[in-house]
């Protein structure tokens, strides 16, 4: 075992006691730039072999790892305003990795990776009890009520990097973890241990035509997300639940920031 190999392990060991992980991947989504076009959703679905049905209008059973929600300020015409919230999995850290979904899984089909801060979902291990879906306050988890159907020759466009799911299991956004694996493989093959910011980007980040999504290591001061998350206009969804999510949002509009945490009309923001 090489000496520097040991260093790579530290994150894991540190992680057992707290969030001393090597990486802490996260996202900052600029809601002032997001146009609500939905490209991130399609990029995500093609990247991750997410199937489609003939009727996807029942949004409760429509699987969208990344979903763009629309919020309005509730004011009448012409003072109405709308804002889109792209919602991937928040990869909640909770306290020491106790994400709401991870704690309740009886099958250990989902865990918190202390090396990356990413919450996994292992389809072959999941037996479909859906406790995690009940526990997730962001509705980021989806259940496969049916086996996927790939019509005509569309199976040809499936990616070998992500395993297609079967009926009866839960799935969710993985921050395109296979891209992390791919980037690390390349680094290893070149004799490097570290990957650069550009080498690992999620499909939604890469596709976003407005450049609204920024992805990187929240712990690394050289990554853009590190600074962006500290903006006074940055916030997280339902922050007061203590889920400690790793997806940050940015908006200069105060009603949008308040909408992010269900503040009551007369309640004071934090």
């Amino acid at each position: 075992m090489k000496e520097e190999h040991k260093e790579g392990v530290q994150g894991h060991e540190g992680g057992a006691h707290g969030h001393g992980e090597k990486y802490k991947f996260g996202m900052v989504i600029d809601l002032d730039k997001c146009t609500g076009c939905g490209s991130c959703m399609v990029a995500c679905m093609t990247e991750n072999n997410v199937p489609y049905k003939k009727n996807e209008t029942n949004k409760l059973d429509s699987i969208t790892w990344m979903r763009v929600f629309k919020a309005t300020n509730g004011k009448p015409y012409p003072d109405t305003d709308i804002c889109y919230f792209p919602r991937p999995c928040m990869h909640c850290e909770g306290e020491h990795g106790h994400a709401p979904c991870v704690s309740v899984c009886p099958a250990t089909a989902t865990d918190y990776n202390y090396e990356t801060g990413i919450v996994s979902q292992i389809y072959t291990r999941c037996f479909g009890c859906r406790y995690c879906m009940a526990a997730c306050p962001y509705h980021a988890r989806y259940f496969n009520w049916w086996d996927p159907v790939w019509p005509d020759d569309t199976k040809e466009s499936l990616s070998p990097d992500v395993s297609p799911r079967m009926r009866g299991v839960v799935e969710k956004c993985s921050f395109c973890f296979h891209r992390f694996q791919g980037a690390r493989d390349k680094a290893y093959a070149e004799g490097r241990r570290e990957i650069t910011e550009n080498e690992y980007q999620t499909a939604c980040t890469q596709a976003c035509p407005a450049g609204a999504i920024v992805f990187g290591d929240l712990n690394n001061p050289e990554h853009k997300v590190h600074e962006l998350k500290q903006s006074p206009h940055a916030f997280r969804l339902l922050e007061r639940l203590g889920t400690n999510p790793k997806v940050y949002y940015h908006s200069t509009r105060s009603w949008v920031r308040r909408a992010g945490d269900n503040y009551l009309t007369n309640e004071r923001s934090k």
């Binding site: 060991e13 250990t108 990413i118």
Partner: peptide
Amino acid sequence: GENNACFV
């Protein structure tokens, strides 16, 4: 002493 998280 390697990571044994699921996604590894």
